[in-house]
Design a protein around this nucleic acid. Sequence first.
DNA 1: AAGCCTTCTTAACATAGGTCAATGCACGAT
DNA 2: ATCGTGCATTGACCTATGTTAAGAAGGCTT
Lengths: 197, 197
Amino acid sequence: MQEYRFSEFLTSNIEVDEKVLSQFLSQNQRKTFNKGDFLVFAGDLCESIFFVEKGLLRQYSIDEKGKEHVLQFAPEGWLVNDRESLYYNKPSKYNIEALENTEVFILDKKIIEKLEEELPEFATFNNELLNNHIRHLQNRINLLLSATAEERYLTFIKMYPDILLRVPQWMVASYLGIAPESLSRVRKELATRNFKK
Amino acid sequence: MQEYRFSEFLTSNIEVDEKVLSQFLSQNQRKTFNKGDFLVFAGDLCESIFFVEKGLLRQYSIDEKGKEHVLQFAPEGWLVNDRESLYYNKPSKYNIEALENTEVFILDKKIIEKLEEELPEFATFNNELLNNHIRHLQNRINLLLSATAEERYLTFIKMYPDILLRVPQWMVASYLGIAPESLSRVRKELATRNFKK
DNA sequence: AAGCCTTCTTAACATAGGTCAATGCACGAT
DNA sequence: ATCGTGCATTGACCTATGTTAAGAAGGCTT
């Protein structure tokens, strides 16, 4: 579980003077959460953007029947926020919870906008990040539309082998949109099939 | 079926001088497609961004079993492109097809970047667009994870009543991730239920 | 007007995956 | 060491949705 500072995230992706950068990023934007803590509760307003420097977050909703649905996991180097709150001042539909002791760097919309104005390179980079995020979401939608439980699981293993080891299995099931018992069954089936070969 | 020019899209969302704008946007970026035409075939490289000025597009994949899955519909005022191609120079997984006679305004990455550099307001606006798109995709994922066929359909009706009338029902089913026959069943069920009340 | 697509519907049947309940296991707290 | 809690597994059963196949209603095309 490495650590990944936000400043490092920036300097390793865009050309920018360390000093210029430091004027944007103050130490007090860093915050620590313990395993089990909530960064955001559904119903809250959430106008911050969280960059995970260390640890692991999950963003999830709870439906009327009380079931949880994982929208995303966020390990080191990932950004999480609630767009509904950030751009429409609406209460969030999603909880954000720390699955491990987690350090986040907290950004607000104004800082992002300021960075974009002052550093055109950042604007381009941020754009790519957003587009990349969209790409991921689209691929996930495509998977949810077309793939069986087994296919979804296999894709997950390939894409996020690290996360697989850091979260309980039922959360993976929740991310995949299947029941935990079903995932158990899929795994059993895969195991016996591999054994036979 | 109204018409929505890209220039109008910009001027109605950001403060910008018409003349400044016109230097970016030339007439030859406009293109017309007939119903049934393909703008992009899966496997193609697609480095353009399409803004729909008139008409209707759909972006969809075809899985190994030959089934189509609609990633999105794009009526007037919507942007479509393939991020996989645009940012990673990879062949597209998705087809883009004109469902009606359609006029699109074609942008490439460079124009977007230039607009962002020259017009900070555009950068902010574009950012909001991308974030809004992410928000939509997240909500759709959440729906796919948690909702039954009926709930998905009801949500679709509320969100896209216009599109409902412009595309065949089986495409809606494909967008919702259910079989056309299932959608038929859902509709019947809804009809009899409303009748009983 | 006839014939041909395409779409939608319906019904019978099949199945992946959900639900419920019981068991066992691992691990942290006492 | 023991208890309790949360997680994973398993099996029996159930249900929503997929599949297959057929027929009916429009709407193009010739």
